[in-house]
Design a protein around this nucleic acid. Structure first.
Lengths: 184, 184
DNA sequence: TCAAACATGTATCGGTTCGATATATGGACG
DNA sequence: CGTCCATATATCGAACCGATACATGTTTGA
């Protein structure tokens, strides 16, 4: 899932600026399963325009930086469908928290407990924010997607709450002197 | 979670080669929440060795390419604890499948159905493989982590099975002529 | 039977992407 | 009244992925 396809997908829901595309992929309806930085979005948009898959027009507003509004073309729409029609790649999941969990035995208890609590709070916020997104959506497919995310995240949170004590019990059981010094 | 920390974490469970580290992060007990390629592992190991956080010895076996076996040092163990003691970054989840789900209305039904079925099969395989991993583990923290993954994945699979029909109903409802041509 | 495919193993290279930063301006907040 | 935050575009270095090259032994199958 390269950034060009992502931009096309977001633009297929309506015209937008580079800044708004970034926001959509961080806070908006695409937020929980994609991610993109300015460093990849702006070059991607430039290349899409050069390839004729999007068009841009400049909106000059007095006293504000001008907005460069991008819109998808018919060729872009076709390219999007073509890209999404190929067998999708595997989902990617990366978790620093689970790396900490793996190494729990070598870590001081407070580090493990702190990581669990941070993780719980992070999921809570994500669920809360996704519920917000769901409430404001009108596209049924987008609602399905966000709702699926809410359900999965809420379950992951419940699992963590139920089993966290088992992990915390293990924390520090392989803690060496060397670690004790480094920890604080 | 940079690759250097990942290498240290894997090496903290025992000495290993670059090739085996890659395998652990793709098939093994770290497989479902980390990922690293040779292009990042080998340079990372070289730098870790230069920094004195790991050591290496060459094992020459007749009729086979020599193995370069890395082991973590005390300094490396301390650096690992230090790195994992910092507040963990957010979990990252990326899904090409969910991007397809988002765009379901613009896609032909067979594409959406195909993506769902591919996704179901992929999760089934992942759960199956993780169960295998759990069965062969002895470290309790590693078992906790893998078990957490099994539970979450199994729930995500159940959710998908329960709601897939709703998504499939939406497929193609915004399908334009342009798309119809591009799809096949 | 013998080639093709695959597993082990190290390593590099091009292209993509991240994270931080620069630049510019208006509004909010204490 | 200065500092921070939101809007907005854009670039740069570092990190990283995916593919590939190389070398060799084993397994698989037409």
């Amino acid at each position: 899932m390269n950034v060009r396809t992502l931009c096309l997908a977001i633009l297929s829901f309506g015209e937008s600026t580079g800044y708004e595309i970034k926001k959509q992929s961080v806070d908006g309806k695409f937020s929980y399963f994609v991610d993109a930085s300015f460093g990849s979005i702006y070059p991607a948009l430039a290349r899409l325009e050069a390839d004729g898959l999007v068009t841009s027009r400049q909106e000059i507003q007095p006293g504000k930086p001008p907005r460069k509004i991008y819109a998808i073309t018919d060729a872009g729409q076709a390219a999007l469908v073509e890209a999404l029609s190929e067998p999708p790649g595997r989902d990617i999941f990366r978790s620093e928290f689970l790396l900490i969990a793996m190494c729990a035995k070598s870590l001081p208890q407070h580090v493990v407990t702190g990581a669990i609590e941070a993780r719980i709070q992070a999921i809570e916020e994500e669920v809360e924010q996704l519920r917000h997104v769901v409430a404001e959506l009108d596209d049924e497919a987008a609602i399905w997607t966000a709702q699926y995310g809410v359900t999965c995240k809420a379950q992951a949170l419940a699992n963590l709450r139920e089993t966290r004590a088992d992990l915390e019990k293990l924390a520090g059981s392989r803690l060496s002197n060397t670690n004790a010094n480094a920890a604080e």
